[in-house]
Design a protein around this nucleic acid. Structure first.
Length: 961
RNA sequence: GCGAAGGUGGCGGAACAGGCAGACGCGCUGGCCUUAGGAGCCAGUGCCGAUGAGGCGUGCGGGUUCGAGUCCCGCCCUUCGCACCA
């Protein structure tokens, strides 16, 4: 039967306000039985929503509708991350107030949510830019300050020249601003910080208990970047001690130089007067460089000698002090010991600047290498070597030798014996040796290294310009691969600790250091404190006062909120541009003082918003402690991966802090996290006209304005690249149900995926087929009120009944498990196809038809609520689908009467047999039935059955020769 | 370089516990209906093979197994994250 396409507009308009009016999405907040806190990351209200945003909200809405039907008391709120730069920039450019701009966007977002059928508990709506919210953001600041976790400090900060604002480390992605992608510069400024590093260990450790995607946890782990090692004190000849951090204290005896970061405070003091100019120039150059330039791995290492010396506390040897920009002031102590034999960077640095290399960890290879230069040896050497089990190669008269490490001592004495008086040889095994006819020098200290070098230079003038033994070795390709390694192995050349095995080396060295008072074991983190000052207007003012007499004084709690001043025009400097905001009275001495003119990073606003939703209107406190501890942590938090570090780390930190204050009983805010993937779409770039909307692209990928060929890239939908698909247009043409269905059907929700117009049409066609089939069933069986009787089923009835229950099982499992709703929808489509075919059969059981349709509508309703609500009504069901319990599957129904058993012969499926399930369930019976089948027998003719594997209800595999 | 995920038809993707590879959808082919089709309906659609029988097929090479997309070993490639972190 064919009907016209269903009227999505009329249907969707009819139901659009229904759920809200009936209050289905309002949480029963004082009844926390069977509670479920579902939360979507709240959006920054900029402009309009596009189809890509739908991924987050539609997924959430489907989950919440499912939960409601499952009988959960769901808290499903929505709010606005409403402070931020775009509003302020728009305000500066267009002369509107950022609040007006923001609220205009919020209205637009709400209109679009309604159009999608995406519902929330709107009574709990919050906006971070409203004083009743940011009052509590300021309150949290004061609490942090009280506990010494908010502090003001001067230092090098990240500065985005485009946004004209400082950035936290987390907001610099690959050296660029997270928002505008500009290269970030360094500036010396005094700013406010939150001491997130005090929580580094807990933030790391507690990741373990979170049900989050592994890769997100890994990203946080890397960001926190814990490393265990030791701090070691190096005395200097000038006086002050240099404290270095190293993860490899076991390599201490190999430290042949010290390197400080150019910004290190001791640099001026440790610089020799005659080198001051060069040092100053180097520091200035390092300061000018961007983070990216400076930390590029490709860049050759550079540095400058300070002209003074320190002392290696283990060996007592004098070692030069350098500065180099590969050492970062912000990590560890800003100073490192250079161990060129066992650190790749130090090795490069030492080779470049002629610093000695001393191996102090045995080489992990079981091999040694040796080089004997031409004219250095008697002809008797070769036959002598042949007797040992070593490989000897001759090249330009020189001998290149390789062999097993245990033969080293024999080789050393052999070489020594067969060298000519002015000859020499190099041997690298566990350590390094230079062989002369009268002695073997072990390169085990700087002194020995110097001696070996001097001796080599005296016998071979060509070494006159060489600065180190390592440099000479490096010129021998045969030795190169053995000069540097970073493995944990037995310590050598390390005085009292020589011979310590690799597995204990670090531990024993740390103990030794502590004993001698030279250092101690420590833990260092990559995580830095969170810089939260922003030189802007549109944010929560930092509630601090600068008094000339009392210094920095917090605004008393009773004076909160510190309101943003109402102004008509906003300047580039934010609050600092508003003279009337600044003067105030010191709360301590009553004298005249100045307000802090910075506002807080918007990530502070969003680091606690999930707590506010339980009591959004509370004027006495940030949240109701009783309710918050009943409803939180959030049971399921859904948002984009782009916040894997930023927001999610900050929110965890603030939660832990509030927990420590005794305000929260939990210390992790989000129990389960699901990150949905981005939606991509082709973006077209014209060199002259920039981004061209896909709809305007001319045939052959031509620019509509100039006809030149466009560059296509498939990237995440974004307004700036003009490659967004508008939900308004989709809803107009196909309806919100179609958009919702396609959004969830296009692929697994955690994966990035390309939007496809054809895919949308496919979903639209499906909904039409579903609609028509439903009307047919309603025509035929709409009046029936009884359930079908499985006892009376024929085999076709039984098959459709089983399929119905299998579908219920599948859809339920996806909602409750991995959320691969694309496969749930596929199952629903499959069942719809089967039911449609069944409907054609003249003997279709009307009771079964009606029951199947009823359950099908319920199953589909979280995805396409409008059409389902309409059909539910037409089916004559009284209540809303949302008030109806989710269908349960009956395990008995899944047991079909017959199963198909594939039969494998020698590993290949040769035929399939339909057998009664009861018979196929018994392996013995199954085997007999299959073997006695005529077709099987025919195929086995002339063969000997060697083995039969019968898997009950699954398959039979026969091995025959 | 390090870490993680992943490579399956023309395309998006299924196969969640080693048991029928390619579900579902798109696209394509043929047919029906139609004045018309970018509508609807029916049939087909991994590749080779004339239809069959059969053979080959989940990045490549090996292995375990009656049986491998799935497990093991060795490569190649892609994407994402981190990247001089001492």
């Amino acid at each position: 039967m064919s009907r016209p396409p269903y009227d999505h507009k009329a249907i969707e308009e009819k139901w659009r306000d229904f759920w809200r009016e009936r209050g289905f999405f309002k949480a029963k907040i004082h009844d926390a039985r069977k509670k479920f806190y579902y939360l979507n990351m709240f959006p920054y209200p900029s402009g309009k929503l596009h189809a890509g945003h739908g991924r987050n909200y539609i997924l959430g809405d489907a989950i919440v509708r499912f939960l409601l039907m499952r009988g959960w008391n769901v808290l499903n709120p929505m709010g606005w991350d409403a402070f931020g730069l775009p509003a302020e920039n728009a305000a500066i450019e267009q002369g509107v107030h950022p609040r007006d701009w923001t609220w205009r966007n919020i209205r637009e977002f709400k209109r679009q949510f309604r159009a999608w059928g995406v519902e929330y508990d709107w009574d709990r709506e919050i906006a971070t830019c409203e004083p009743d919210y940011y009052k509590w953001t300021q309150w949290i600041f004061l609490k942090l300050y009280e506990k010494g976790l908010a502090y003001r400090a001067k230092g090098k900060v990240n500065w985005c020249p485009h946004c004209e604002v400082v950035l936290a480390n987390e907001q610099v992605i690959g050296g660029r601003c997270w928002r505008c992608n500009s290269l970030v510069e360094k500036r010396e400024l005094e700013q406010w910080y939150f001491r997130i590093t005090a929580y580094a260990e807990r933030l790391l450790r507690d990741l373990e208990k979170l049900d989050w995607p592994e890769h997100v946890k890994k990203m946080q782990e890397n960001w926190i970047g814990r490393s265990e090692g030791a701090e070691i004190l190096f005395p200097t000849e000038k006086g002050p001690e240099i404290k270095v951090f190293t993860t490899r204290p076991d390599t201490l005896w190999g430290a042949t130089f010290l390197v400080l970061a150019p910004e290190h405070p001791l640099v001026p003091q440790l610089t020799a007067p005659e080198r001051a100019e060069e040092v100053k120039a180097y520091c200035a150059a390092a300061e000018r460089m961007t983070e990216v330039e400076r930390t590029s791995t490709e860049k050759e290492k550079t540095g400058v000698f300070l002209g003074t010396y320190g002392v290696n506390p283990a060996t007592g040897e004098r070692i030069p002090i350098w500065i180099a920009d590969y050492v970062l002031m912000g990590y560890g102590t800003g100073a490192v010991m250079g161990v060129p034999a066992h650190d790749e960077r130090d090795f490069q640095f030492a080779l470049k600047y002629g610093l000695p290399v001393i191996p102090v960890i045995a080489h992990p290879s079981q091999e040694f290498r040796a080089v004997v230069p031409a004219q250095s040896f008697h002809s008797s050497l070769e036959p002598a070597l042949k007797e040992l089990e070593v490989y000897v190669d001759e090249k330009d008269g020189a001998l290149l030798i390789a062999g097993a490490a245990q033969n080293i001592s024999q080789v050393l004495s052999l070489l020594q014996k067969h060298l000519v008086p002015s000859g020499w040889a190099f041997v690298i095994g566990r350590g390094w040796h230079v062989v002369f006819p009268d002695e073997v020098i072990n390169i085990g200290s700087i002194a020995e290294e110097r001696r070996a070098l001097a001796k080599l230079q005296s016998v071979a003038p060509k070494f006159k310009d060489k600065r180190t033994v390592a440099e000479i070795f490096w010129d021998e390709p045969h030795l190169r691969a053995f000069l540097f390694h970073a493995e944990y192995e037995e310590m050598i050349n390390s005085g009292p600790l020589s011979g310590t095995p690799g597995t204990e080396a670090v531990k024993r060295t740390v103990e030794w250091l502590a004993e001698k008072g030279l250092g101690k074991g420590t833990v260092t983190y990559k995580l830095r404190d969170w810089l939260i000052s922003r030189q802007r207007y549109w944010g929560a003012p930092i509630p601090m006062i600068h008094c000339p007499k009392c210094g920095i004084v917090p605004v008393p709690e009773k004076d909160l909120p510190v309101l943003l001043p109402e102004v008509n025009r906003i300047g580039k400097l934010g609050l600092a541009d508003i003279p009337e905001f600044i003067p105030t009275q010191c709360p301590r001495c009553g004298g005249s003082a100045r307000r802090d003119t910075d506002t807080m990073d918007t990530f502070v606003d969003s680091s606690w918003y999930f707590l506010r939703f339980v009591s959004p209107k509370d004027t006495e406190r940030p949240f109701d402690p009783e309710l918050v501890n009943k409803w939180l942590p959030v049971d399921l938090y859904v948002g984009g991966v782009e916040h894997a570090i930023l927001h999610l780390l900050y929110a965890r930190f603030i939660t832990k802090f509030l927990h420590d204050l005794g305000l929260l009983s939990f210390d992790e805010p989000f129990k389960k996290l699901f990150t949905q993937g981005m939606v991509t779409y082709p973006a077209y770039w014209c060199p002259t006209h920039h981004w061209i909307p896909p709809k305007e692209v001319q045939p052959g990928n031509r620019c509509p304005k100039c006809g030149s060929e466009l560059v296509v890239s498939v990237v995440a939908m974004s307004k700036s690249k003009k490659n967004v698909v508008s939900p308004d247009e989709l809803i107009e043409e196909y309806g919100a149900d179609t958009e919702r269905l396609y959004t969830l059907f296009m692929g697994p929700p955690e994966k990035e995926i390309e939007w496809s117009e054809e895919g949308v049409r496919g979903c639209w066609r499906f909904l039409n087929r579903f609609w028509n089939m439903a009307l047919d069933i309603i025509d035929r069986a709409g009046q029936i009120r009884e359930d079908p009787d499985p006892q009376s089923f024929r085999s076709e009835d039984r098959a459709i009944w089983a399929k119905l229950h299998a579908t219920i099982k599948k859809v339920t499992a996806e909602f409750e498990g991995r959320l691969a709703l694309n496969t749930a929808i596929a199952a629903i489509m499959e069942f719809t196809n089967d039911l449609s075919a069944y409907l054609e059969a003249p003997k279709a059981d009307p009771k079964l038809l009606r029951r199947a349709l009823r359950d099908l509508i319920l199953l589909l309703s979280p995805f396409t609520p409008f059409i389902c609500e309409e059909l539910w009504q037409r089916l004559g069901e009284g209540k809303s689908v949302l008030e109806t319990p989710w269908p349960e599957y009956d395990p008995r129904a899944l047991e079909e009467a017959e199963v198909e058993i594939p039969v494998q012969i020698n590993g290949k499926v040769r035929l399939r047999l339909r057998l009664a399930r009861t018979k196929a369930a018994d392996p013995k019976v199954l085997e007999e039935l299959v073997l006695s089948d005529p077709e099987v027998q025919k195929r086995l003719e002339g063969k000997k059955i060697e083995r039969v594997i019968a898997v009950p209800e699954k398959l039979v595999s026969i091995v025959a020769r």
